[in-house]
Amino acid sequence: MGRDKATTLYEGKPLVEHVVAAVRTRCNPVIVVAAPGQPLPELDADIVRDELPGVGPLLATGRGLRAAAEAGRDRAFVCGVDMPLLTADLIDTLAGPAVALDADIVLPWDGRTHYLAGIYRTSLHTRVAELIDAGKRSMRDLVRASDTHQVVMPKQVALTNVNTVDELHSLPPLRIA
């Protein structure tokens, strides 16, 4: 995108605010993992900083899972900051199987796997550390090393993530219920 996704504006608000608002309806605490020194707007969330810049989502996921475990949570919804159309319904759809199947990870599959839109067992933060120590950097590595269940669903607008300014501008307007 050429700029920080978290602070990129969509309908007048930074992307991170849209995501925090959606997650807040189902998750407590809401933890945002930010790069060292990354500026963020004031959020109704706990801000945790990555230890190393530029390592990618696996390290950030591990940091967030560790913070959720320290807050006493067994599972956490993990998502990217670039999902402004995220809904509580998506979280609910994944939470049921996460509890019923007792899987380490429950991810949506709508024609592709969405690694950054799933329910993760918080104790996986130790596995993330082991993977990073072994030189692994991919969310796929964590999923392959864990008991993972994928929920098959039709294509979901809530799973839309934006990687370019053109993608951001092509999003439908938000509907306020």
Rank of each mutant, 00 (worst) to 15 (best):
G2N: 12
G2I: 10
R3E: 13
D4P: 06
K5R: 14
A6H: 09
A6R: 03
A6W: 00
T8Y: 06
L9P: 06
E11I: 12
G12R: 06
G12D: 08
G12V: 05
K13D: 09
K13V: 12
L15V: 08
L15W: 03
V16D: 00
E17T: 04
E17C: 07
V23Y: 01
R24A: 07
R24S: 09
T25M: 09
C27N: 01
C27L: 00
C27M: 04
N28A: 15
P29E: 00
V33A: 01
A35T: 08
Q38L: 05
P39R: 06
E42H: 12
L43G: 01
V48F: 02
D50F: 03
E51M: 15
E51L: 15
P53Y: 07
G54E: 08
V55G: 05
V55L: 15
P57N: 14
P57C: 15
A60K: 06
T61H: 06
T61K: 07
G62A: 11
L65I: 12
A68R: 01
A69N: 11
E70D: 14
G72V: 08
V78H: 05
V78Y: 05
G80W: 00
M83Y: 13
P84R: 00
L85F: 07
L85E: 02
L86E: 00
T87E: 11
A88L: 10
A88I: 06
A88M: 11
D89C: 11
T93W: 11
A95H: 09
P97A: 07
P97L: 07
A100G: 13
A100R: 15
L101I: 12
A103D: 08
D104Q: 05
I105M: 08
V106M: 00
W109E: 13
G111T: 04
T113N: 07
T113A: 12
T113L: 15
H114G: 03
Y115D: 09
G118L: 04
G118V: 03
I119R: 02
Y120S: 09
Y120A: 12
R121L: 03
T122E: 01
V128E: 00
V128H: 02
A129T: 10
E130I: 08
E130V: 13
E130C: 11
L131E: 03
D133E: 14
A134F: 05
G135I: 04
K136M: 09
K136C: 12
R137P: 08
R137L: 15
R137C: 14
R137T: 14
M139A: 12
L142E: 02
V143W: 04
V143H: 02
V143C: 08
R144T: 10
R144Q: 12
R144S: 14
S146T: 03
S146Q: 02
D147I: 00
D147P: 07
T148I: 04
H149G: 03
Q150W: 13
Q150G: 06
Q150A: 12
V151T: 06
V152W: 14
V152D: 13
M153W: 02
P154A: 05
P154V: 02
P154I: 01
P154R: 01
V157Y: 08
A158E: 03
L159D: 00
T160C: 10
N163A: 15
N163Q: 14
T164L: 04
D166V: 07
L168P: 12
H169N: 11
S170W: 13
P172Q: 03
P172C: 07
P172H: 00
L174S: 14
R175E: 14
I176T: 15
